Simulated scan of single mutants.
Amino acid sequence: MTYDYHGHWEAYTGHNSPLYRSSVDSGSHIHHNINSSVAHWLALGAPVEKLLLGFPTYGRTYRLSSAADSLGAPANGPADAGPYTRTSGFWAYYEICHFIGSATIEWISEQEVPYATYGSSWVGFDDKRSYSSKVQWMNANNLGGAHVWTLDMDDFGGYFCSDGPYPLINHLRMSMGNKVSQSVSVRVCKNINTEVNSN
């Protein structure tokens, strides 16, 4: 699970699934990122080929509490629940696609992930660019493959993101060298995670 590193339970904005630490991280938060988590498992002796990198198809939201809107900006709880998931604190990727139509999108270069703001709403999420960065990192570190949480939070019908069905998952498959078909062929694990082997 290389996601849920940050969320509305914190008093400052932070990205859900950053690849690396940021300059605003301090204390134990310096380890709330993919690079640090995987390094920890490897240091404990986990076989690298058994580690699968988690790719979220959702983002974590915040309600900004000042005019600041960058990473590490003061926040007070979650943004409004999404119209479909109806759960405070996160939006499915298809809800994010609707939001970013009117939002300002920024790239966190030191963490290789995007966030978007509109009014007092802030969401840290993944897109094709961040997926590509994570696949490159995963391959460079010889991990066993990838898993996705979760199928139904990608734009499964292709109606919201103007990019066809399953835009994130299909991009992940292509980035890993797999062909994309109309139906996403995946193996669903017991916990509903989707495993996409790199072999």
Rank of each mutant, 00 (worst) to 15 (best):
S162P: 00
A43V: 00
R63M: 05
V196L: 15
G14M: 01
F55G: 00
K190S: 07
Y62H: 14
R21E: 12
A75K: 03
I34D: 04
Y20N: 15
I34P: 02
E106S: 15
F125P: 02
I30W: 08
S175E: 15
I34F: 06
Y5N: 13
V113W: 03
S181L: 10
T194Q: 07
L52H: 10
S183R: 12
Y94C: 02
V188P: 00
G72Y: 05
S130Y: 07
C97V: 01
S36C: 10
W107S: 12
S175Q: 15
V38F: 10
W91C: 03
A116W: 03
I34Y: 07
E106F: 12
M138Q: 08
D152P: 02
Y115E: 03
V24S: 13
D152I: 01
S133N: 14
P83A: 13
F125L: 11
R60Y: 08
V24F: 04
Y62N: 14
S28L: 13
A116G: 06
E106L: 08
Y94N: 12
H6K: 02
N35M: 05
T2E: 14
V186C: 04
T85W: 06
T13A: 15
E195T: 05
S65L: 07
H171T: 12
D163E: 15
A75T: 05
F90I: 00
Y159G: 04
Y159N: 14
I169S: 08
Y58K: 08
P83L: 00
D25T: 06
R21Y: 05
Y5Q: 09
P18I: 10
Y94Q: 03
I100K: 02
Y3H: 13
W9E: 10
D80S: 12
D154K: 04
N199E: 07
G157W: 04
C161T: 04
G101R: 14
N141H: 15
H171I: 08
F55T: 07
L71P: 01
P56Q: 09
E95C: 11
H6A: 12
A140K: 09
V123I: 12
R173K: 15
N142C: 03
